[in-house]
Design a protein around this nucleic acid. Structure first.
Lengths: 143, 143
DNA sequence: GTTTATGCAAATTCTTTGCAATACT
DNA sequence: AGTATTGCAAAGAATTTGCATAAAC
């Protein structure tokens, strides 16, 4: 279980050119605690000492520094998730996401790698997102 | 070029249990004209005789009837696109989308099929969306 | 005449920014 | 002092809903 401590987080931020502040530690740690994509609202509910706009700006900063990923699950809200690869420049820690249309929860499927995709000549790929929608196992057994 | 005429659209809607109205014909025809995902705003700009909330409700209806797909391109707005398979229940007309982070245009890549994905036991797949982000050929050559 | 569809207006939600105050170096 | 960060408030943008009118059956 690789729950980052603050020293680890500090060096991670610094190595990506992000100056360390208490709030940035908090936001990153909160993102790392979750093992799934979380929304700005969730983070704000969780970090009630920190203003939402500050969290938003922190997320934008971390995203620009390739420390976190941003994605959407089809519900219209942006979700954020820590990058797990050591060097996040190459987005090789991408994995699939599953959005349950019944309970509106988003799962990470890390068991299967994102397949290689081919694009026409001249197009440059920066990232690949795979979003599966359906009904999760909990909703199927309970529903 | 399979530009649906109104008779074709009518039977398509009816076969999916959607009652035909003039506005539904207009909305579906507009979606079919575009060969790419379009936003509610674009449709509203285009169909200036129709109210935006009516278009929204029509899109919701068509989506529920599996006549159109809904997707996001990472910009935060919902995009809609006609289903191309005859029987849209099985989403076998899914294709990849490419979002240019520079010009914010979304392309459809129909050349390569969506790869099969594996999900854990008990999860039911309804649809698979693949969103590639990067820089398109126009922006790369012009920029 | 009853049900359905539509337009208008406004509520809601989420994202983003301006600006003053605070903290840091 | 000067720069960067944060909080507060509010602007913007998109989605969604309530309700009255109009159309369809």
């Amino acid at each position: 279980m690789a729950s980052n401590n603050h020293a680890q987080i500090d060096s991670l931020l610094e190595s990506h050119g992000v100056k360390v502040t208490a709030i940035r530690q908090l936001v990153y740690a909160a993102l790392a605690r979750h093992r799934r994509p979380v929304s700005l609202r969730e983070l704000d509910d969780e970090l009630d000492t920190v203003d939402r706009s500050t969290i938003f700006r922190t997320l934008t900063l971390l995203h620009g520094a390739h420390l976190i990923h941003a994605l959407e699950d089809g519900s219209g809200v942006a979700l954020y998730e820590v990058c797990t690869s050591s060097d996040a420049e190459d987005d090789d820690d991408q994995h699939m996401h599953f959005y349950c249309t019944r309970c509106h929860r988003t799962y990470c499927f890390r068991t299967q790698p994102i397949p290689e995709v081919l694009v026409p000549e001249g197009f440059a790929i920066e990232s690949v997102n795979v979003l599966i929608k359906g009904v999760c196992v909990n909703c199927r057994t309970q529903g």
